[in-house]
Structures are given as C-alpha cells and as structure tokens.
Nucleic acid binder design. Structure first.
Lengths: 215, 215
DNA sequence: CCCCGACGAATTTGATCATATTCTGAAATC
DNA sequence: GATTTCAGAATATGATCAAATTCGTCGGGG
C-alpha cells in the first residue's frame, strides 16, 4: 500500500493528478467532470474526489455550472483578456524578484529545463512542451521566493491550461516562440528590469497565441 | 428545514459562513479550526465542512499545517509585502474598468455604502466598518465586470481579513483614513486614471496600517 | 403516413450522513 | 529523559436520499 503515494493523503493525490491533467491538456474545454467517473478511474472513494474538485473549482480550474455539474472551463475573449491582464501584472514581478535572488545553480537548472523544452519542440511532443514550459516558469517562481504571488499565478495557469492545449494541438509545436533565452540572459546578468520585460513579452506572446488559436 | 439556506447546498452555506467569519474578524490569526468543532457548531455533517475547508485552504484563507491541522494564517512581513504587491497590481485596474463602465445607479449605491461606512466609523463599530468597507470594494469590483480579476482580489482579502481585524481592534475606528471619496469623485467624472490612482492610494494606506499594527 | 414536440419514467449523478480506520500528539510510566 | 500507551481528531468508505438529465413514448400536426 506504500508503493502508491508514499504517505500523502488520497485527496492530495487526486488533486495533483487532476491538476496535471488540466495543466497538460488531458482534459478538453467543455468536457464534463463527474465525481463517480473519477472514483472508478482513480480507484478511490468519493470523499477525496469531492475535496479535490472543490479545491480546483475554488481556483477556477474547473467550472461549477449553476446546477450541480462540473465542466472544464471554456474561455471566451473576455476571460482571455482578464487572464492576460493578471499575468502581465504578476509574472514580470516574479521574474524581477528571481533576477535579484537567483544563484548559479538555479540558473543552471532553468537552462537544463529550457533545453528539454527545446527538445520537446523539436520532437513535435506537445505534452512534453507543456510540461517543460510549465516547469520552467515554476522553477523561476520558486527562485523568486514569493509563495503567495506564485500561488496566484499557478491558479491562472490552471485556468488557461486546457485551452492552451487545444491551440497547441492545432498548430503542433511549430510557431511556439518564447522569451526563455532572453529571460535566462537577464537572470545571468542579474538585470531585474530586463527579466521583467522579457517575461512580459513571453506572457503576451503566449496569450496572443491562445486568442488567435481560439478565434 | 427550508428556513435556512433556501435551496443552497450545505457545503456552500458552510463556506459562506466561514468566509464571512474570516473577512469580518470573527476568527483570530493562529486560531486552530477543527472539523469536528464546526460540525457541532453548525449542525451539519463533516463532509460539507471538509469541502468548505478545502476551498478556503486552496484560496489561502486558511493554513494547512503539514500535519493535519488547520489554523487561521498568521501573516509575517513578507506575506504582507506580497499581498500589497498583488493588491496594487490588481485593484487599481478594477477601479479603472469600473470608471469606464459605471452608471449613475451604481455610483449611487456606492455612495450609500460609503455613507454607512462613515456611520460605522462614527459609532466606533469595528465589525460594521469591516463589513461596509468590504461591501464598497465588492460593489466596485462588480461594476468593473471582470469576474476573474475580482475572484483573485477576493482571495487576497480573505488572506488579510483576520489580521486587519486585529489591527482595527487595537486602534478602534479612529485613524481609519480611506480614499473612497476620491474614488467616488473619479467614478463620477469617468476619470479612469484618477480612479486607479485613488484606489492605489487606498490599498497602500490599508496595507500600511496592517504592517504598522502588527509590528 | 411520417415527423416534430412535449410529457413522463428510469437511470445517472450529486449531496449528505454515519461509521470504521489510521495517524498524530500528549500523557504517564519506567 | 526516553519509550509506550491512550485519547482524540482527521481520513476514507459505503450507503442512502434527492435532484436532474436523458431517453422513450405518446399525441398532435403537417
């Protein structure tokens, strides 16, 4: 019984499993998510499933339709605009803090993650791209050492994850520009302003892609 | 049985009850929150209580201590800094949108709320102050018509609610300056820049008060 | 005669509770 | 002071109840 989650409670495991499914595009926008379906699929009782779903709906990662049905959210243009505003307001600040606090080991890890990201793009591996792209930003946020801001940003990523997957599924891994090289350079130079500017550009490019892909 | 929540599910009622307790200072920072205590206090089963607690911990309104104990969060200086950064980044943008979208009826409601707020201050009614102050900002956010940004900001308020209550409890309702008059004037003039600036000042004043009160 | 729409029954799904199990923290003893 | 035991609280399950959707059928209209 210890091969599974190494001591973590079941509701935590269910939460992480679902979060990854949302972030990395295993759930489609509009798709219904049922409690009983998950209990069978994940082989756990309904209480842990309910708790995980509450956490995700509270974060906006799932949509609670007025009746009692839960679906993966479908983003409209207004929602994408709001997410863009929030990301532009928050993520450059995290990049700024990361530039002030990063050390050589952290930059090396980020560089390695970015290299794996390039590999996924070269292979045409959409899921690999999503995983490593998220990992890059998560590592950067960890360096920034701002847990509350990081939480907020993670919640934003959960909201657009499924839609990002749809866009990537349409275009493949071609035309996926990012500013990671510029971010890495700015971190290496400890240039907080440059890091913030590069992150802002990265965010705007990514969100533009979602807007155009769903249009 | 229908006098209670008029059709709303129990977990939703428990959530709202707890959220109000947190926002309006009926829970102290550091205070433990137990499931079984709430089941007796609110006369509901433990499943709805668990779900409400999951939602609140996911939002950062409650702290999940690594073991399985839940407490009302205690803010340190770093947390207050982060909350200030996030509020300054988001709330002025909501004020800006509100200035562009508000109508006479909305401004009238805001003015009435602000008048009740002044009344609470004059009476020395700390809870009334907290309720009406939150109401003022909630109404303004509703006018802005940006549900995602509003959700983010509501989550921030949940994080500092208990600590704000502590500060107000120390100082009473004296020395509670706000920029609501300036905000109302800016909305009336449809001046988005002025509204954003006034909101920024309001946020910074409020967070400074928390910092100094907890020092 | 065929097709569309509305009404109703059955199945699926969600909500709640009571109970068993496990883990944590603390007290008491050696 | 360290170890063991005990109490209490949280986790997880399954059962039960209520609500909603869906599918099938019946009636009316084209």
């Amino acid at each position: 019984m210890q091969a599974e989650g190494s001591g973590l409670p079941a509701h935590e495991l269910v939460y992480r499993r679902l979060r990854d499914k949302i972030l990395f595009g295993e759930l489609e926008p509009g798709q219904p998510v049922t409690i009983q379906g998950l209990t069978e699929q994940l082989q756990v009782g309904m209480t842990p499933v309910r708790e995980a779903l509450r956490r995700l709906t509270a974060a906006g990662a799932l949509d609670f339709q007025g009746n009692r049905r839960i679906i993966v959210p479908v983003l409209d243009a207004a929602a994408i605009d709001e997410l863009t505003i929030a990301r532009v307001a928050l993520e450059p600040q995290l990049a700024r803090r990361a530039a002030q606090r990063c050390d050589a080991a952290g930059i090396a890890r980020l560089g390695a993650t970015d290299a794996r990201l390039d590999g996924a793009i070269a292979r045409g591996d959409v899921r690999g791209y999503l995983v490593e792209n998220h990992q890059f930003h998560a590592e950067l946020n960890a360096i920034a050492g701002a847990p509350i801001l990081t939480d907020l940003v993670e919640g934003l990523w959960l909201r657009f994850g499924p839609s990002l997957r749809v866009v990537c599924g349409q275009f493949g891994t071609r035309n996926l520009p990012d500013q990671h090289k510029a971010i890495l350079a700015a971190l290496g130079a400890r240039d907080a302003d440059a890091a913030a500017a590069a992150m802002r550009a990265d965010v705007e490019q990514g969100m533009t892609q979602i807007t155009e892909g769903l249009a």
